[in-house]
Structure formats: structure tokens, C-alpha cells
Simulated assay, not measured.
Amino acid sequence: MRMLHTMLRVGDLERSLSFYTEVLGMQLLRRKDYPSGRFTLAFVGYGDEADNTVLELTHNWDTSQYDLGSGYGHIALGVDDIQAVCDAIRVKGGKVVREPGPMKHGTTVIAFVEDPDGYKVELIQLSSRG
């Protein structure tokens, strides 16, 4: 077995695609409209689905926002230079909600950014996993 994807419901698909592709550097891998169900699925990631876990963005045409609730945590991305990535995210209009620094009760350097729907994305400095 292997993990295939994680799904997020998004209120504005174009805005979310812009964030994940332009701000976080993912590629749009595939996209399909389902008119009879009034939804669109878009898959984004850093490589082909055959070899990589990807993110499914589900846009229900009649829903413009969701209550994220208290159960959702975050998506995590490993990065080589966390400060440079945060700087680049800010330049591209992304929102850094926790600046790079050691995690509480540990040494791993992390930061958090927020997507347009309020989902948190954790950035983890790969060279300093603790």
C-alpha cells in the first residue's frame, strides 16, 4: 500500500490553484469537471501521481467556503532552506502565519503558511529534523 492523495474542499478553485502552483510551486497534474454532480476535481503536486503523493482540491460549485472545524491539522512540506521559502512565499502574496524557528519542545525548524481557504501548510527544514 501507499498513500495516493489528500483531499481539501476549496471555495474558489482558481484562487486555490494559483496558491498551490504559483506560491508553493506545485504542478497542476489533472483537472476534471463533473457537471452532473456540480463539482470539479483538480490534482496538484510535485511530481507524477504514479510516484508521488498529491493533493486533491475539490470545488463544489455551489459552496464558496467551509468551516474547517477543529479536527484538521496541516499538510507538511519538506524544504531545504526554510527562510528562503518563506521569503519567496511572501513575495508571491502568500501568508506566513508562523515564522521559521524551532518547534515547541523540540529542535526541528518549522514555519506555517496559510492557503486562501485557511488551511495550514507546515514547512519543515529538512536538514535539521530533530
Rank of each mutant, 00 (worst) to 15 (best):
R15W: 08
H59F: 14
Q65C: 14
L55V: 14
S18M: 09
D117Q: 08
K92M: 11
T108M: 00
T107D: 07
E56Q: 15
T107I: 10
L57T: 05
V121W: 01
Y46T: 08
L17V: 14
R38K: 15
H74K: 03
D117H: 07
Y72L: 08
F19K: 05
D117E: 12
E114W: 07
Y66D: 08
E22G: 13
A88D: 13
D51K: 13
S70W: 04
F19T: 03
R98G: 01
R90L: 07
D81I: 01
K92P: 05
E114N: 08
T108D: 01
G45A: 09
K120Y: 12
C86R: 02
G25F: 04
M103P: 00
R90H: 01
F19H: 05
T63C: 13
V96L: 05
M26W: 02
S18W: 12
G93M: 09
M103D: 01
G106T: 07
N60A: 12
F19N: 09
D12G: 09
S127E: 14
V96Q: 08
F19P: 08
S128C: 06
G101V: 00
M1W: 03
D80K: 08
A111Q: 05
T58M: 14
G106P: 00
M1D: 06
D117L: 09
Y20R: 10
K104S: 10
S18F: 12
W61F: 12
V85K: 14
Y72M: 06
V23M: 02
T58Q: 12
L123A: 05
S18K: 15
G69D: 03
G47Y: 11
K32S: 15
V85P: 02
Y66S: 11
S127A: 13
P35V: 03
G71C: 02
N52C: 13
V85G: 02
M1Y: 04
E49P: 13
G25S: 05
N60L: 15
D117K: 06
D12S: 13
M26S: 04
A88F: 03
V96K: 07
Q83M: 03
G11N: 11
Y34K: 10
L28Q: 13
G78V: 06
Y119V: 02
R15D: 11
S36V: 15
S36N: 15
E122P: 04
L8Q: 11
E22A: 14
C86V: 00
A111I: 06
K95C: 13
D33P: 11
F19C: 04
E22R: 15
D62I: 00
S64A: 14
H59Q: 10
Y46S: 03
G78Q: 06
K95I: 04
H105I: 07
S18V: 07
K95F: 11
T107L: 07
Y119N: 14
H74Q: 01
V10E: 01
S16D: 12
Y46H: 09
H74E: 03
M1S: 12
G101Y: 03
H74G: 02
V85S: 11
A88W: 06
I75T: 10
I110K: 02
G101P: 00
E56H: 09
P102K: 13
V109E: 09
T40D: 14
I124K: 06
I75F: 07
A76H: 01
T107R: 10
E56C: 12
F43G: 02
D33T: 11
T53W: 01
Y34G: 08
H105L: 08
M3P: 04
L68S: 07
H74I: 00
E114L: 10
G45Y: 10
N52K: 12
T40L: 13
L68E: 06
K92H: 10
R30T: 11
K104F: 15
